[in-house]
């Protein structure tokens, strides 16, 4: 068990200390994070990190493997480009949570700002509260689950992947459509909520790509696969 007081360390010193401790798979506790940016960046070894307080931008980003619990709020881009592992945030996340995430799980206990799950390429983003506009913008793969409401332009230009919304939908983005989730989908989702300590059982709606923007409407002769 390693305890690090962020108050007395620069971001570089803190991250290097985390990386060093992570090499041995230690359990790491970070005290006094003071909502600073770039805490727990680039941790590529499996370990457990508890952050006791709010964090700024890019907390727990560019990671592969760790399990991170943050007791507080987070700024922009929490868990950006997560490859694998799990991040649990107890309160609210700023914009671009899980941006370009490629795998693993991110759980936001409160609300999330704009562009939640933007450019997601895999994994699961679960938001216990509401999410802002452009949720799932240009999403490529993976799953976003919003228990509350979402803002405007949800799922805009998404390629694949799926967005579930338990509350109201501000508006759909370009090329997104709402379909009915299957009972299997709902059972799986409710199980996910139970695992995450969320007691609600919303009747989710499912948003997927219409796939009408996959291709240009027309191609020049040489742009076609067969001349």
């Amino acid at each position: 068990m390693v305890s690090l007081d962020a108050h007395s360390l620069s971001a570089r010193e803190l991250n290097q200390a985390i990386k060093k401790a992570a090499l041995t798979g230690s359990q790491i506790t970070i005290l006094n994070p003071q909502a600073r940016h770039n805490i727990a960046v680039g941790i590529l070894d499996s370990c457990k990190i508890d952050i006791d307080g709010s964090v700024g931008y890019y907390a727990a980003s560019l990671m592969d493997g760790p399990e991170v619990n943050i007791d507080g709020n987070a700024g922009w881009a929490l868990g950006e480009n997560l490859m694998s592992g799990k991040i649990v945030l107890t309160k609210d996340a700023g914009a671009s949570v899980a941006a370009s995430m490629r795998g693993g799980d991110i759980v936001v206990g409160g609300n999330a700002g704009a562009r939640a799950g933007i450019s997601m390429k895999g994994g699961t983003l679960l938001i216990g509260g509401n999410a802002g506009f452009l949720t799932g913008f240009m999403m490529q793969k993976g799953r976003i689950v919003v228990c509350g409401d979402v803002g405007d332009a949800v799922g805009d230009s998404m390629y694949e992947g799926v967005i579930y919304v338990g509350g109201d939908i501000g508006s759909l983005g370009a090329d997104a459509k709402i379909i009915e989730p299957s009972e299997t989908d709902l059972i799986e989702l409710w199980g996910l909520l139970e695992q995450s300590g969320i007691n609600d059982r919303p009747r989710f709606r499912k948003i997927v790509s219409q796939k009408k923007l996959y291709h240009f409407d027309n191609l020049e002769r040489l742009e076609m696969s067969a001349v």
Partner: peptide, 30 residues
């Protein structure tokens, strides 16, 4: 690229995690 095969891929114009120069400063530090 985690994309469907055969699509006419048009990549994003904006970064997913930052927008303006103040954000870029934090991204560079990241």
């Amino acid at each position: 690229r985690d994309l469907p095969s055969g699509i006419d891929q048009r990549s994003p114009a904006r970064h997913p995690d930052w927008l303006g120069p103040d954000d870029l400063a934090v991204k560079i530090e990241q």
